[in-house]
Design a protein around this nucleic acid. Structure first.
Lengths: 221, 221
DNA sequence: GGGATGGTTCGATTAGCGTCGAACCATGAA
DNA sequence: TTCATGGTTCGACGCTAATCGAACCATCCC
């Protein structure tokens, strides 16, 4: 058994092409089955099973058995943060590598684990700080709760957990921060519930409808 | 040649025990020679040379030749951010694993790439936002420049570069943000120059002298 | 029960990579 | 010039880990 820094162990879990492909597929916060993940990794079920066992063992993924299916999802938002930190990196080497339409959509708005990222996510974060809806410790102020109520979010509605209410997450495309944490998730959920935007099926892209984008911007006024 | 997500390539560079040990040793922003890095990695010079070549090739490190020495340092603060993101992870598995005196010092104040991290770093970041020295986009306000002048920092003194003036960096121990970027470096430099604190030789620990800590807190008033 | 599907375990193969010894090049000092 | 030191290149060795075929277990449906 070779000893070394703990970070090497974690990095090694992400270092395999098949595993990293699976992790990226889970970046939208969904839970996928082993067979589906084998598909995105381009490997057989046996191999995927081995990989997934390693990832669960390393506490990068968590698994939930449901009937004969086993659903895998990221172990928490810190995994998402790690993956975005790695993306900052790779897209750094060749700045304007490929900017196809799919790429532009991703930069505009996408889901990062379970919250809003991209231009729209960064705008949300900026305005909440700028307008004083969030305080120094990223705590929600009275003014903030008032505005959130306009969106249909009551303080009591947010599920209690040991996950922080608000966190800042470094944005891959914008190189700035966007809103994460339980509130980040709640806001995205509301935006989707209000049909201001929708998720593209097999991707992380969030598409804002023109009317929805207008209302979102107006709310942030 | 096996193809896969770009992040796997980067993660693989960190995944090796010897390489990650070298990277951690460079986390304080210093530039070390190949032989020194071979030492911290516990490997021979030949092996280290191979590793370092890979890290430079992957743009994780940069190298500067000086005489017959070659000095290696982290390619930028995004590398530091990645490493801290990995540490958040590993120290997460068993929360109160070991809290020796060295660990306590690290949590109190340490150097992260080239800026202040730990409790003191987080406090700095919080107060600058709270007091309005920093604006929404992490731009320095007039009020901020006034306070920075009290510390002996003039706007013109800060070296121009394409590195952002202010950035938020996720803190490994505090799970909150601290001040990074050129200003983060400049503030730490001043704190050291004023002898409010000093660096422990072979570690990332920053030790505040009692009087220095008092003055630092007073400045942040 | 019988068949189909999701998932795991085992074993064998293979490929990649970390490692070091040895030789070699470059720089600086005596 | 000669020697010492920092660093790299080359080649060979050995280990680890990814991969898949085949067999096996569990669950669901008919």
């Amino acid at each position: 058994m070779k000893e070394g820094p703990e970070i090497a162990r974690i990095a090694a879990l992400v270092a395999d092409p098949a595993r990293s492909a699976m992790l990226l597929a889970l970046m939208d916060g969904r839970a996928l089955t082993a067979t589906e993940l084998a598909g995105v990794g381009g490997i057989t079920r046996q191999t995927a099973s081995s990989h997934l066992a390693k990832l669960v063992e390393g506490e990068v993924l968590v698994v939930e058995a449901q009937g004969r299916h086993r659903y895998f999802r990221l172990a928490g938002s810190h995994v998402g943060a790690l993956l975005e930190a790695l993306m900052v990196f790779s897209s750094d080497a060749v700045p304007p590598l490929r900017t196809g339409p799919r790429d532009l959509s991703l930069r505009k708005a996408r889901i990062c684990y379970d919250h809003l990222a991209g231009e729209m996510g960064v705008m949300l974060y900026d305005r909440m700080l700028e307008e004083g809806w969030l305080g120094r410790d990223l705590d929600v102020t009275d003014k903030g709760w008032t505005k959130l109520a306009d969106l249909g979010l009551q303080q009591g509605d947010l599920p209690a957990s040991n996950r922080p209410l608000c966190r800042a997450c470094l944005d891959w495309s914008q190189r700035r921060h966007h809103l994460a944490g339980r509130l980040g998730k709640a806001v995205l959920d509301r935006v989707l519930a209000l049909s201001w935007a929708r998720r593209l099926p097999a991707s992380r892209v969030i598409v804002f409808h023109p009317e929805g984008e207008r209302r979102f911007g107006e709310w942030l006024r």
